[in-house]
């Protein structure tokens, strides 16, 4: 399973490849180079990192040791969630901050410049997406009781189940992906999302997204709380 170190290395390699592409061919429109070279790898890394933080105890069979040092399972859940969200938020912001001047230098060869306001919106959108993916990855690890199973389930859920659900008329407007897209469109109207958006207002989209996250995290917590630890 990908450890945080390998997640970071993979994101770094993708960012460097993206910078090389920008150096050779330029930035393109709508900051798409950032979306492809940093945004997408960071999203995958966020799923993997969320799964790792919640699943390391399952992967190494150390949950019983953790709970015999401190049996408070709610405390363990909240601590892991806080650490995962904080680190992913920090990593997202730092990586985009580091990439900005480097990509700027590469784009300057072609007489292009990074629009700061658009870039700010892109970072904010990526930050929100990554926080969502961390929770989904972590929750599905807890629900499946397995790190490998959780990562697989998270990828299938986000890229297959939720995508299929998103194209269902009416009901699809309430899928996690469509709600997230509604929020991202509100932040960055020019961005290219996976979904078209439903037309829900931002508060409605936030409520739908929150319901999904609370539901998934709640199921994960219930599984952790009720399960016998082997």
């Amino acid at each position: 399973m990908p450890t945080p170190r390998w997640c970071l290395i993979a994101v770094g390699v993708c960012a460097l490849v993206g910078m090389a592409v920008v150096w050779r061919w330029g930035l393109g429109s709508d900051l798409v180079a950032f979306d492809v070279a940093i945004g997408f790898p960071l999203a995958i890394a966020s799923i993997a990192f969320g799964a790792w933080v919640f699943g390391v105890e399952y992967g190494q069979n150390t949950l019983r040791r953790t709970l015999t040092a401190d049996p408070r399972r709610l405390r363990l859940f909240v601590t892991k969630l806080t650490v995962a969200l904080t680190l992913v938020a920090l990593a997202t912001v730092v990586i985009y901050l580091v990439a900005l001047p480097l990509y700027g230098i590469a784009a300057d060869r072609h007489g292009e410049a990074v629009a700061i306001n658009d870039y700010r919106d892109l970072v904010l959108g990526s930050l929100i997406s990554n926080l969502v993916y961390v929770i989904v990855g972590g929750a599905l690890v807890l629900i499946t009781g397995s790190m490998a199973g959780g990562v697989t389930a998270a990828l299938i859920f986000l890229f297959v189940v939720d995508t299929v659900l998103g194209v269902v008329p009416k009901a699809g407007d309430y899928s996690l992906g469509v709600a997230l897209t509604d929020i991202l469109i509100a932040i960055r109207p020019t961005g290219d999302g996976l979904f078209a958006g439903s037309g829900h207002s931002t508060p409605e989209a936030v409520a739908i997204l929150a319901a999904w996250l609370v539901g998934l995290a709640g199921l994960g917590w219930l599984r952790l709380w009720r399960s016998d630890v082997k």
Partner: peptide, 9 residues
Amino acid sequence: IRLLLGLTR
């Protein structure tokens, strides 16, 4: 032993 340690109920 697992019951005693609260690992199961």
